[in-house]
């Protein structure tokens, strides 16, 4: 048999290995040419969905902001206590009537604090969250601040006396509108959650000056909750030192101790 047939045959066989190799590669590495949607049907319809680009508007955005001076129902913002934390020109020291002070509110506040505030102020409010640490490093860089970074140390919310004396309404106002170098969170966090955070900040502050006598006689702090197996599992992880914020430890001393105490 002529050699050439054997060569050609072998080369053809090798070519058969090519498609599997390509498939294996596409499946194993992220790729910017995908996705390929073979059967289109009505998979991608010519309609504008949430956050889509829209050439019809000057800002290119499908989602429209409300018309200037339009007021949506329930958004009159006339209630100075609820929206600004102010009663008769003074900082409010109680929650507005729309929000109940209970364990659920504090829990919610704890969870939201850990999401929005702990990055800078730290889980315990001490002012040394990871972003704060990193920003201080960037400023302290030996060749001058990296990319012009400037940073003011995030406030220690639980020990700085200028902060601990602030009424709840003032904390709420700071969260809503921001203060000096801190941005406001009014657009990211709904009103109820901002009050819950403010209440939790007060709870955190209170927990720093708690005495054994604050605990009702005969109760152990952990008695408040009987954990289900799932939460026990969560605790096991937390105690192993994994990176789990305290929102998940149901027996966080601050909230347990202060249940019903504010």
């Amino acid at each position: 048999m002529p050699r050439i047939f054997i060569f050609v045959g072998l080369i053809l066989l090798l070519c058969l290995l090519l498609p599997p190799a390509i498939i294996a590669r596409v499946r194993s590495t992220p790729n910017s040419n995908l996705p390929i949607h073979i059967i289109q049907d009505m998979a991608f319809q010519s309609k504008y969905k949430t956050q889509a680009v829209n050439p019809m508007f000057a800002d290119g955005n499908t989602m429209r902001p409300p018309v200037t001076n339009a007021v949506a129902r329930g958004e009159t913002y006339l209630d100075a206590h609820l929206y600004d934390g102010v009663i008769d020109g003074q900082w409010a020291n109680v929650l507005p009537s729309q929000i109940k002070m209970d364990f659920a509110t504090l829990r919610r506040g704890q969870e939201r604090f850990n999401i929005y505030c702990s990055v800078c102020h730290g889980i315990s409010g001490g002012g040394n969250g990871i972003v704060n640490q990193r920003a201080m490093e960037l400023v302290a860089n030996t060749n001058g601040p990296v990319n012009g970074t400037v940073w003011v140390q995030a406030k220690n919310l639980v020990h700085d006396e200028l902060v601990t004396v602030q009424p709840m309404g003032q904390v709420f106002n700071t969260i809503t509108y921001g203060i000096r170098n801190m941005a406001g969170y009014g657009s990211q966090v709904p009103t109820e959650d901002r009050w819950a955070i403010a209440a939790y900040v007060k709870a955190l502050q209170r927990s720093q000056i708690a005495q054994p006598s604050d605990v009702p006689a005969g109760t152990k702090v952990a008695d408040h909750i009987s954990p289900s197996p799932a939460t026990t599992a969560v605790h096991n992880v937390a105690s192993k030192g994994a990176t789990i914020p305290a929102s998940n430890s149901l027996t966080n001393p601050a909230t347990s101790m202060l249940e019903g105490k504010l």
Binding site: P20, I23, R27, T29, P30, S32, L34, I36
Partner: peptide, 22 residues
């Protein structure tokens, strides 16, 4: 061969997963 090619090559796991736009 063709069967496996279609099953793997045309599967959404190949054609759709792994999309990484810039």
């Amino acid at each position: 061969y063709v069967g496996l090619f279609v099953a793997y090559g045309f599967s959404p796991k190949t054609l759709e997963a792994g999309y990484m736009p810039t």
